[in-house]
Computed example of a mutant assay.
Amino acid sequence: MKIGIIAASGIAGGHILREAVMRNHDVTAIVMNKAALKLDVDTIETDLFYLTPEQIQPFDVLINAFSPPLGEAHLHVEAGKHLISLLENSEKKLFVVGSSGCLFIDRNKSIRLLEHDEYPKHLVETAKHQLQNLHDLQNSSIQWSFLSPSVMFDSDGPRTGHYILGKERVLVNSQFNSYISYADFAVAVIDEIENNHFVNKSFTVASENVNSTS
């Protein structure tokens, strides 16, 4: 499968890149600076806002792991709109790395995590704009999936390959922790791309069989 990964030199994008390469997918990194890449793969060196239909034409799936600088969370929405416009009238899929703040915390799905008093204040704006990104996907005509991490998103956690999936609510594992390592998140991303269980849906993931703390 031909996969383009936007922000493949970032934390989330880097883990997804390694997972895709390990599974022998045909991967292209889409980055601002290819010198920042830790793997030798095909590269498109550009700002995502300058991506063209011609550049993404070879891909079956485009993964958006873009993370704007602090204070510029609104770029999530602008990036999302640009990517939706690029993929309109095509069979290509857009896979988006979402935000835990988009998840509901109650059974009635009336309160999202970003609205909870204990949700980190510095993440609220990102979550709000990621939620708008999700709404834009839901109102689009393209094929997409939107994966939100658990509350604790651990960049140093192990790749266990063991995880559980949920839909729109905060998910906890058997240890009652809402936890996912970046490595297991990447496993879930590539699994979904290979299996297409959540087409035009948002979902979430938590690591299982790992010693995590809440």
Score class of each variant (00 low, 15 high):
residue 134 L to K: 03
residue 134 L to P: 00
residue 134 L to S: 00
residue 134 L to H: 03
residue 135 H to M: 13
residue 135 H to S: 14
residue 135 H to L: 14
residue 136 D to S: 10
residue 136 D to E: 14
residue 137 L to V: 02
residue 137 L to S: 07
residue 137 L to F: 04
residue 137 L to D: 05
residue 138 Q to V: 02
residue 138 Q to M: 13
residue 139 N to K: 15
residue 139 N to T: 11
residue 139 N to I: 02
residue 140 S to R: 11
residue 140 S to P: 09
residue 141 S to A: 06
residue 141 S to V: 03
residue 142 I to G: 00
residue 142 I to A: 00
residue 142 I to V: 00
residue 142 I to K: 04
residue 142 I to D: 03
residue 143 Q to T: 15
residue 143 Q to H: 13
residue 143 Q to A: 12
residue 143 Q to P: 03
residue 143 Q to C: 09
residue 144 W to Q: 06
residue 144 W to V: 03
residue 144 W to K: 08
residue 145 S to K: 08
residue 145 S to H: 08
residue 145 S to P: 11
residue 146 F to M: 06
residue 146 F to C: 07
residue 146 F to N: 06
residue 146 F to K: 04
residue 146 F to P: 05
residue 147 L to V: 05
residue 147 L to W: 07
residue 147 L to E: 01
residue 147 L to I: 15
residue 147 L to P: 00
residue 148 S to T: 07
residue 148 S to C: 15
residue 148 S to M: 06
residue 148 S to Y: 01
residue 148 S to G: 08
residue 148 S to V: 04
residue 148 S to R: 04
residue 148 S to H: 04
residue 149 P to F: 01
residue 149 P to R: 08
residue 149 P to A: 02
residue 150 S to M: 08
residue 150 S to L: 05
residue 150 S to Q: 12
residue 150 S to A: 15
residue 150 S to E: 07
residue 150 S to I: 02
residue 151 V to I: 15
residue 151 V to W: 13
residue 151 V to M: 12
residue 151 V to H: 07
residue 152 M to I: 15
residue 152 M to D: 11
residue 153 F to S: 08
residue 153 F to N: 08
residue 153 F to D: 05
residue 153 F to E: 07
residue 153 F to P: 02
residue 153 F to Y: 15
residue 154 D to I: 05
residue 154 D to H: 06
residue 155 S to L: 09
residue 155 S to M: 14
residue 156 D to W: 00
residue 156 D to F: 01
residue 156 D to N: 14
residue 156 D to V: 02
residue 157 G to R: 12
residue 157 G to N: 04
residue 157 G to P: 00
residue 157 G to I: 11
residue 157 G to F: 12
residue 157 G to M: 13
residue 158 P to N: 10
residue 158 P to F: 06
residue 158 P to C: 10
residue 159 R to A: 08
residue 159 R to F: 05
residue 159 R to P: 02
residue 159 R to E: 14
residue 160 T to C: 08
residue 160 T to H: 10
residue 160 T to P: 08
residue 160 T to M: 11
residue 160 T to A: 07
residue 161 G to L: 09
residue 161 G to H: 09
residue 162 H to T: 12
residue 162 H to P: 00
residue 162 H to I: 06
residue 163 Y to W: 00
residue 163 Y to G: 13
residue 163 Y to T: 09
residue 163 Y to E: 04
residue 163 Y to F: 11
residue 163 Y to V: 02
residue 164 I to F: 02
residue 164 I to A: 15
residue 164 I to V: 12
residue 164 I to G: 13
residue 165 L to A: 07
residue 165 L to N: 02
residue 165 L to G: 04
residue 165 L to Y: 04
residue 165 L to F: 08
residue 166 G to W: 09
residue 166 G to R: 10
residue 166 G to D: 01
residue 166 G to K: 11
residue 166 G to V: 04
residue 166 G to P: 12
residue 167 K to L: 09
residue 167 K to V: 07
residue 167 K to Q: 15
